[in-house]
Structure formats: structure tokens, C-alpha cells
């Protein structure tokens, strides 16, 4: 009896991610959600520009590679072309919260019936560790070598908090993948985000607090510790918006 196997929605190919990178875990959670909902044959994923740029080679469903930041607009097109299909975008912090902020905000405010997986690791990984929109105050990166100076370049963008202020979106939750408990919660959130789309509820975004050992200059283990001690306090986990739950609570 097989008790553990690769999700069907992941291709059987080696991933290019650095050792200790949490993208692999998040890919798996997405693939498991697709498998469990039985939607692989009608799912289309949109890959970003950033570390996950080659996600199109990893997910076993139809995939589209978008220009930097434009994944929510591309996903909108795919979804509008065939609303029966399930469409998700998988984006990093530079992609979603910097160059693609407008596309993110407007897909959310339209309550576009898509699922967005937002991987926030507070740094630009692919280009070698530059300051991200989500880089913490004081955090050292290649382009904030003396630590992020908020007087000079402003504060980190808190996407979940921001989007939850909009009337439009159905579901916004922030999760982390630094330990088993959080990973299980992340899985639940991601599956719910897909389930919402299947049920036609609209825009769901799951912000996944993630680590980048390579560019943080830490061992995988230390990176997870740094995430817990620095990122989670700044980016508190939890459900930021759940319209269906809100409505149910109000009707009681």
C-alpha cells in the first residue's frame, strides 16, 4: 500500500529550487488541492516572473507563463475565455506586490473568480537577493545593503491587510510554511481557495510566508527560525477576509 506519493498534478521532474527553499512545499500543497478536488483536467495555471518562473514545467495541468506582474490579468483572460475552467496564478512578492500591484488590486476588486497563491519571502530571489516590496524594515539585501531604511524607501506592503479592505474579494488568508502545523493550515487554506472558485464564489488569495535561505544567507533551518521570529510578527497569520463566513455570521 502506498502511503505517500507525489501528487498527480505535479510532473515527475526535478525542481530547480535551492536547497531548503519552501517553494517545493507550496507547489505540493497546490497540487494536492487540485488532486483532491479532482480538477486537474480543467485547471490552468499561470506562472510568474521570479523564482517560480518555471512552474509551468512542474504543474501537470495546462500552464501559461505571464509577463512580470501580469499573472492576474492573464488569469482573468483565461477565466473569461472559459469560466468552467479553474484558473490559478502563482506569484512571488516582487511580481504580485510591486510591478503587478495594479493587476492584483483590480483582479481582487472585480472579485475575479480565480485563485491566487502569493509567495512572500521578503526578497527578490531569482535576481539574486534585492529588496522586495515586502522586505522588512532594517532587513539587509543587495539593494538595501545598510538595511531597509523606511525613511528613504518606505514601508513593506501588507497585501492581505490591503486587499481585505476591498469590497470585492471573497477570501484572503495569510499562512506560513515554516512548520508542520502551519503547513497543514496552509494546505487547508489553499484547498479552500480552490474550492471557492469551484463554487463560483470569486477571488481568493492565499499569502504564504516563505523562506529564502540562499538570499537571506542562512541555513534552511535558521531561515525558518528567522521567518518565525521576524516575518510572522510583521505579517500576522490568519483569515483577513471570508465573505461567506461573514454573511453566515451576520445572518445568525
Amino acid at each position: 500500500m502506498v502511503v505517500f506519493e507525489k501528487p498527480k498534478s505535479l510532473c515527475d521532474v526535478p525542481l530547480h529550487y535551492c536547497p531548503g527553499c519552501t517553494h517545493g512545499i507550496i507547489h505540493r500543497l497546490v497540487a494536492e488541492a487540485i488532486d483532491e478536488l479532482g480538477i486537474e483536467g480543467r485547471t490552468i495555471g499561470v506562472a510568474p516572473v521570479g523564482c517560480a518562473v518555471m512552474a509551468y514545467n512542474y504543474f501537470n495541468c495546462d500552464m501559461v507563463e505571464a509577463a512580470h506582474g501580469r499573472a492576474p490579468a492573464v488569469a482573468t483572460g483565461i477565466k473569461r475565455a472559459d469560466p468552467e475552467n479553474i484558473v490559478f496564478s502563482y506569484q512571488g512578492d516582487g511580481d504580485l506586490a510591486s510591478i503587478g500591484t495594479a493587476e492584483t488590486v483590480h483582479a481582487a476588486t472585480r472579485n475575479e473568480n480565480i485563485t491566487v497563491i502569493f509567495v512572500n519571502n521578503a526578497i527578490y530571489g531569482m535576481t539574486g537577493g534585492q529588496m522586495a516590496p515586502t522586505t522588512l524594515p532594517g532587513q539587509i539585501t543587495q539593494t538595501s545593503p545598510y538595511g531597509r531604511d523606511v525613511k528613504h524607501c518606505g514601508y513593506p506592503v501588507k497585501i492581505s491587510e490591503m486587499l481585505s479592505q476591498l469590497e470585492g474579494p471573497e477570501y484572503i488568508e495569510r499562512v506560513a510554511v515554516n512548520n508542520v502545523k502551519n503547513i497543514r493550515a496552509a494546505k487547508k487554506a489553499i484547498k479552500k481557495a480552490f474550492q471557492n472558485q469551484v463554487e463560483g464564489k470569486g477571488f481568493s488569495l492565499i499569502e504564504v510566508i516563505s523562506s529564502c535561505p540562499t538570499n537571506w544567507g542562512l541555513s534552511p533551518e535558521k531561515a525558518l527560525q528567522w521567518l518565525e521570529e521576524n516575518m510572522i510578527p510583521y505579517y500576522p497569520l490568519g483569515v483577513y477576509k471570508d465573505r461567506t463566513a461573514q454573511k453566515e455570521a451576520e445572518s445568525k
Binding site: V46, A66, A73, V74, T76, I78, A81, A102
Partner: peptide, 26 residues
């Protein structure tokens, strides 16, 4: 059909990219 006023020209052309990828005239 679908008419959608996009938030920008950039978003509009990327929505076009999405529909074109899905194989429909756009």
C-alpha cells in the same frame, strides 16, 4: 461575449494574452 474595461492598457493586453492562450479570438 465578454467586454471588460481593464485597469490599464497593460492589463488589457495581458487579458488578451490569456484569452489568446485559451484559443479564442480576442
Amino acid at each position: 461575449g465578454c467586454f471588460l474595461q481593464a485597469e490599464s492598457e497593460i492589463a488589457a493586453i495581458n487579458m488578451v494574452y490569456g484569452v489568446a492562450g485559451a484559443g479564442k479570438r480576442v
